[in-house]
Design a protein around this nucleic acid. Structure first.
Length: 369
DNA sequence: CATGCGTGGTC
DNA sequence: TGACCAAGCAT
């Protein structure tokens, strides 16, 4: 333990803090579907879904996921496109692919039993320091810190720490700090208590300090600095990219869909034919029409605009100029580019921006959902 | 260590 | 409307 941790915890009443936090958690915790069992697999899935994602958003996804993949074996044997479809709209799609990779490893290497050591579980794909601590403490009662954004916020206020929480080094500081104060009798309630407190009471803005069960331990409250913590360097906002996209239909009611690259943004999801609009283009619609004829080998008519779809990612913005179009001629597709019956389009996993485009198309065509 | 990776809610 | 942010991880 380094000198800084020692100084911070020197006169800290650890046992009383643990008791106040755990008692509060047991009384006030929310009823959530993943709290109905301590099945390590279910706890694990919930933690992956909850990464950077709100509880209210996750609940229906979790329930559907468990209905479809109730066990390790079910997930290990799942089809990747089906998996992406279940994850559709949840974002950060690499999470589900990494999860399946890891679950396959547990299925094959550990006989379907989720390993209970930091070394083994923590080395699985998609499992970082936070998820390791969360799953092993909740499912197996191991006293391992689970430091997420909530915990950094709560602890930064309790100990009045103004280090930039965007830095890896700061997260490690908080892990060392939690290591010192975590309950060994009930690590699960302790870790979840810190997170629940951050979600319900010690909120980013307007924290409900007067309702806080650990108010007496909070240095920031006593110093009046709770509204200035935690300190986090602002992210610079990303650039905007312009795209033209066309929903192409033929006389037989088939729609052309295309699968994205298996790497990078929205990997392996589906979209409608589109291209970045370059400043060198003279006429967006005509230029892209020509490009489409080349790429698809069919006659193409861009018929009418469907509107402009704006989509803000965390690191960039898309402005999609969407159109409805028609194609004629024999279309020769491939695994990643095909014409599918209009009623099957929604069987494919689409990211939200292209769901918006599809919605515009359906409204224009007068197709009910 | 910095950046890429989604989406929706809130103020 | 825009900035911030929510149970992070891989590279």
């Amino acid at each position: 333990m380094n000198a800084r941790i020692e100084k911070l915890t020197k006169s800290f009443k650890i046992n009383e803090f643990q008791k106040a936090l755990i008692d509060w958690f047991k009384e006030e915790q929310r009823d959530l579907p993943w709290r109905e069992s301590k099945d390590p697999y279910k706890v694990w899935v919930s933690e992956i879904m909850l990464q950077q994602t709100r509880v209210d958003t996750v609940i229906p996804y979790f329930n559907r996921f468990m209905e479809k993949y109730p066990t390790i074996a079910d997930l290990a044997n799942a089809d990747e496109q089906d998996l992406l479809k279940v994850w559709e709209g949840l974002g950060y799609y690499s999470r589900v692919r990494n999860l399946q990779t890891a679950v396959k490893e547990v299925h094959e290497k550990y006989g379907g039993i989720v390993p209970d050591t930091k070394e083994e579980f923590g080395s699985l794909k998609g499992v970082g320091p936070y998820t390791t601590g969360a799953v092993l403490s909740i499912a197996y009662g191991k006293p391992i810190p689970a430091v997420d954004g909530n915990v950094m916020r709560v602890m930064s206020r309790i100990f009045n720490i103004d280090d930039d929480i965007a830095k890896v080094k700061t997260r490690k500081l908080f892990e060392a700090l939690v290591e010192e104060v975590i309950s060994h009798e009930d690590p699960s309630s302790f870790n979840q208590g810190l997170m629940e407190l951050g979600a319900l009471v010690c909120t980013p803005k307007n924290p409900s300090c007067l309702l806080c069960p650990v108010l007496e331990f909070c240095t920031a409250y006593h110093e009046g600095t709770q509204n200035d913590l935690p300190v986090k360097k602002k992210a610079k906002k990303g650039k905007t990219l312009q795209y033209i996209a066309v929903v192409l239909e033929d006389e037989d009611g088939k729609i052309i869909v295309r699968q994205r690259s298996s790497e990078g943004l929205l990997a392996s999801l589906w979209e409608f034919p589109n291209s970045e609009v370059l400043s060198s283009w003279k006429n967006m619609v005509e230029d892209y029409e020509k490009q489409l004829v080349e790429e698809l080998g069919v006659e193409v008519d861009v018929v009418e605009p469907l509107g402009v779809v704006d989509h803000i990612f965390s690191h960039l913005t898309w402005k999609i100029h969407a159109f409805r179009g028609e194609f004629r001629g024999e279309f020769v597709g491939s695994d990643n580019l095909k014409a599918v019956p209009i009623e099957e389009v929604e069987d494919y996993p689409f990211p939200v921006p292209y769901q918006k485009v599809w919605k515009e198309f359906k409204e224009k065509r007068g197709i009910g959902s």
